[in-house]
């Protein structure tokens, strides 16, 4: 992927350069799209609903959280709040990338923010930091294949998921906790990771036992975030400016 394409100023070559960079993301996200579709159906979604969620939300972890809570019959507004909470990190990406794409027409910007996922931000920011402009054609080339494959593979996973006969023997019901643990571990390089995880784990278990589901999600999350806010900044690794 390190091949530098000599960019002719035409939008077409910029687009295809973006497409080329999108390929690792397409490959890496494919299993998760299929998994989402299969699990969504297992939790009570229809194939169309699984497809629709992928097409409109377009955020893997938050979609998994949504179907997990949906399967537990949690109040709808709390499901939406949890999706919002998991996706809240995008606020930081949005603030960062906003400076890079401010020269686009407003509608292009609106579309650009819609496909602003973790890898989209990472690759676009890397391009900007290398001194190149982040053009709309290039950005779209990077994001569009990821989006198209994501929704098609979700639908395929949902169709396939309906064919699974014995969900328990295949462990389908416990795949989401495993997946979420994987995501939690993925954040382990972040400052304050361990204290936050311990605080959230303890608070959510206590809340689950006392107040009951679904409140353990909000209470546990608030406990972890509050701990990060309260601890002195030099522990959190955030520079004081």
């Amino acid at each position: 992927m390190a091949t530098d394409v000599i960019s002719e100023s035409g939008g077409k070559s910029d687009f295809w350069q973006g497409v080329r960079l999108s390929m690792p993301v397409v490959v890496a996200s494919a299993p998760f799209a299929v998994l989402f579709g299969a699990l969504a159906v297992d939790q009570g979604f229809t194939v169309f609903e699984a497809f629709l969620m992928s097409a409109l939300v377009f955020g893997g972890a938050s979609q998994m959280v949504g179907i997990q809570l949906f399967g537990q019959h949690v109040a709808p507004w709390l499901i939406v709040l949890s999706i919002f909470a998991v996706n809240f990190r995008h606020v930081l990406y949005s603030a960062g990338i906003g400076r890079r794409i401010a020269h686009w027409p407003v509608l292009s910007q609106a579309l650009g923010y819609f496909i602003l996922t973790d890898p989209q931000y990472a690759v676009a920011e890397a391009r900007a930091q290398s001194g190149q402009t982040v053009g709309f054609a290039w950005y779209l080339g990077l994001g569009l294949p990821v989006y198209v494959f994501w929704i098609v593979e979700s639908a395929l996973g949902a169709l396939f998921g309906k064919l699974i006969p014995n969900a328990h023997a295949l462990g389908i019901d416990f795949l989401l906790p495993i997946y979420f643990l994987g995501l939690v571990m993925g954040f382990r390089k972040r400052p304050l990771w361990l204290p936050v995880v311990v605080a959230s784990a303890c608070a959510s278990i206590i809340a689950y036992k006392t107040v009951g589901s679904p409140w353990h999600v909000s209470i546990g999350a608030v406990a972890g975030v509050l701990l990060a806010v309260i601890l002195p900044p030099h522990h959190s690794g955030v520079e004081t400016r």
């Binding site: 995501l183 995880v197 959230s200 303890c202 959510s204 689950y208 990060a228 806010v229 900044p233 959190s236």
Partner: peptide, 28 residues
């Protein structure tokens, strides 16, 4: 112009905090 360090620390903690609550009670 700048985000308060404590706010930024809180924002940084959000994903791990939310996702942990989806795993921990399953241990019970």
């Amino acid at each position: 112009d700048n985000i308060h360090p404590r706010v930024e620390a809180g924002l940084n903690a959000v994903p791990a905090a939310v996702l942990t609550t989806l795993v921990a009670p399953e241990l019970l």
